[in-house]
Write a protein that binds this DNA or RNA. Structure first.
Lengths: 141, 141
DNA sequence: TTCGATACTAACCCAAAGGAGAGTGTATTT
DNA sequence: AAATACACTCTCCTTTGGGTTAGTATCGAA
């Protein structure tokens, strides 16, 4: 896609979003954050911590489901860096590490909650759409 | 417990859990949906269509930003299959294809709106957290 | 006759995501 | 003495994401 010239203007928001002025620099920033956060594992971990409160590493892994240790560690680190979770190490043997949401993380969890609800409400619509789409493709519309 | 022949197995990581009395099939489904829509390009396209209404392919690409035709096509097809967007082909030359959100898509857009607002509100907190985290790592806490 | 416009698809390639499995450190338990 | 527990880290490997370039079809304009 040709993006050699990107004029910073010509965004006419239908007034439906926040009343903030459309600053392209800010928009790029927000876009970057969305890009980082709109991630499967981040969302799943967020959801799990929101539902169960403070959890230890292994415990969290089991509750999230089919996540590998590698991805759990990596995603947790990113979330810690972004200030979404706290990581509390108890210097004991065997190791004990507690993960919990920060206020920021809880805020995102609350925001994302509506998406989760949407998915629960409309999964059957999506299934139907997929079936219809597959049929359309198969039949050679 | 047979330990004479047992190789050093440390984890059985693939075990399924059931924390909540939720139908596991439904949970897997919702999880799958979240996994599919919690995607950078899907969110960005959704946002763009929500803000601008009906758009043509190239137009949409420009407004979304740095997206390649390949990803635009691919994401759009997935969204069409999931029933989030409609694809209307006008059989003219040169080709003319209109993309617009469905009710389902608009619903998801509305749900995701709060996440977008959260990102706008807290991007500076995230920046600060990242800086603090980097400093913590660099200084060897 | 050649060009340009549009919305793609196909082929190629590289980088990142992500899974599997083994290794680490040490105090307590067997 | 050996196993165990926990929270990792490291290496190896496959899959997916995603960019780039080229090509296609067709009509009207130059």
């Amino acid at each position: 896609m040709d993006q050699s010239v990107t004029p910073p203007i010509l965004y006419e928001w239908a007034g439906r979003k926040s009343a903030k002025p459309v600053d392209p620099a800010l928009e790029a920033l927000v876009r970057d954050i969305i890009g980082k956060i709109a991630d499967k594992w981040t969302m799943l971990i967020l959801e799990t911590l929101e539902a169960h409160g403070t959890l230890r590493f292994t415990e969290l892994g089991h509750k999230v489901g089919d996540i590998s240790q590698k991805m759990l560690t990596k995603t947790l680190r990113q979330m810690e860096a972004d200030g979404l979770v706290t990581r509390k190490v108890h210097p004991v043997v065997p190791p004990h590490v507690d993960y919990a949401l920060t206020d920021l993380g809880r805020g995102l969890g609350a925001a994302f909650c509506s998406v989760w609800t949407w998915a629960e409400t409309h999964y059957d619509d999506i299934e139907k759409s997929r079936a219809a789409f597959a049929a359309r493709q198969g039949a050679g519309e």
